[in-house]
Design a protein around this nucleic acid. Structure first.
Lengths: 224, 224
DNA sequence: CTATCATTCAAGTGATCACTTGATTATCAT
DNA sequence: ATGATAATCAAGTGATCACTTGAATGATAG
């Protein structure tokens, strides 16, 4: 051991943090947290070059945040475990609570309105069981297809205006999206409330729901 | 808003992660987590140049991880909140569970022996109340003076050999240190067990104990 | 065995970061 | 005010990082 064990440990810890220190990798993590995806799919969705995306993925892998497995020609990446997800979320939480800039951006997303407290996943589960809530998955259709909360209705943010009429029948609306780093649910709730509908966000996102072993609609096979 | 809100958010999150991405800053955080310290004291303890340490501290401050206040001529830095501490710990946890290199280093610290499971803080508190445990604070004396667990005995790692005789009277020994990034407790437990004593680590470190509002001996004023 | 597809590797470039040195600001004691 | 102390700021340098481009691997299908 040429360097001290302490220095070696710190270097490893810093390696993990460095993996989270580039916006492009956070985008990738956000996608990987939704379910298994091949490099090509990730590159498309994040708007990164193929090779660039591959390199970022390897950095994430060296940091232990993602894992991959081979399936046919493709190599599918996924989050290593729920700890990686918690790390992503804690990063958000610290930034939201301690950085004024983040608070401003999030408040601007709500369009000046007061955003209601998010609904806990426990409570949402209970209210889904008694049918007293309309659950919206506001992610794009292909991510919805990769797995979603059982009983959720897919209304991508872009199609929300058209879906407004069928939502106006009274039941409180709860929206969720990808979870960490994703602002779709914020935007959806703001839009719904501007139209006078009672809407809240679910706390966290789809990855949290899945990590807790709650009821899911299974993914459809054969998507890159 | 020239860039999209999402890009702006990701940039802020990455800023927080980047603050954790340098070993020197992790060293500073470790110290700051022990209690309030002035820049000069932090520079000494971390072996950094004065100016360099100051710059790192400002990066940590911009990331919302540390906060400062003025007292006389000095500016004292402290962790912003317990979330910052949890972020430091989760970083360790992810690295320990998912990186083989970290596992190897930690195992090497135990000198080939099997390290026992750490004792939870809840259980330690109960056993301290019934007096069935000897609690060792293995940090340097001046950090001990800045605050420590009520009932703990200060035995810095360097002085552990001399203290062995008075520890050999039977009660199980529990050692703790700075918590995240600190390996003193690992080393102390390994040394004690090599001498045939029953010893375990406390889970976490002093900052966790304090953050949970448990019984502390108060800091002595007037230390830089 | 060869062709093809998905991914990784390798080299090159501009930008950013860590650290040093020297000057500047801000507070307190005299 | 003046000097001393604590901390920050500013400029400069070498190293590292993100991204691009083009070639190389590795698995599967014919």
């Amino acid at each position: 051991m040429s360097t001290s064990p302490k220095a070696a440990l710190l270097e490893e810890y810093a390696l993990v943090a460095r993996a989270l220190a580039a916006p492009a990798r956070l985008l990738i993590l956000e996608q990987v947290a939704q379910g298994e995806r091949a490099v090509e799919g990730l590159a498309e969705r994040t708007g990164l070059t193929f090779a660039n995306c591959s390199q970022h993925l390897q950095q994430l892998r060296r940091a232990g945040l993602v894992t991959n497995r081979r399936e046919g020609k493709s190599i599918l990446y996924r989050l290593t475990d729920s700890r990686a997800l918690r790390l992503m979320e804690l990063l958000c939480t610290v930034a939201e609570r301690n950085l004024a800039e983040v608070g401003q951006i999030l408040r601007a997303l709500s369009g000046g309105q007061e955003a209601p407290e998010p609904l806990s996943r426990d409570e949402l589960e209970a209210r889904l069981a008694e049918g007293s809530v309309t659950l919206l998955d506001v992610r794009p259709a292909d991510e919805f297809a990769l797995g979603h909360i059982a009983g959720a209705m897919n209304v991508p943010l872009a199609t929300l205006p058209e879906a407004l009429p069928q939502l106006a029948d009274g039941a409180e609306i709860v929206a969720y999206c990808r979870g960490p780093y994703c602002i779709y649910a914020h935007q959806a709730v703001a839009a719904l409330r501007r139209h006078g509908l009672a809407a809240r966000r679910m706390e966290g996102g789809l990855p949290d729901w899945r990590a807790e072993g709650r009821a899911m609609s299974p993914p459809v096979a054969g998507l890159s």
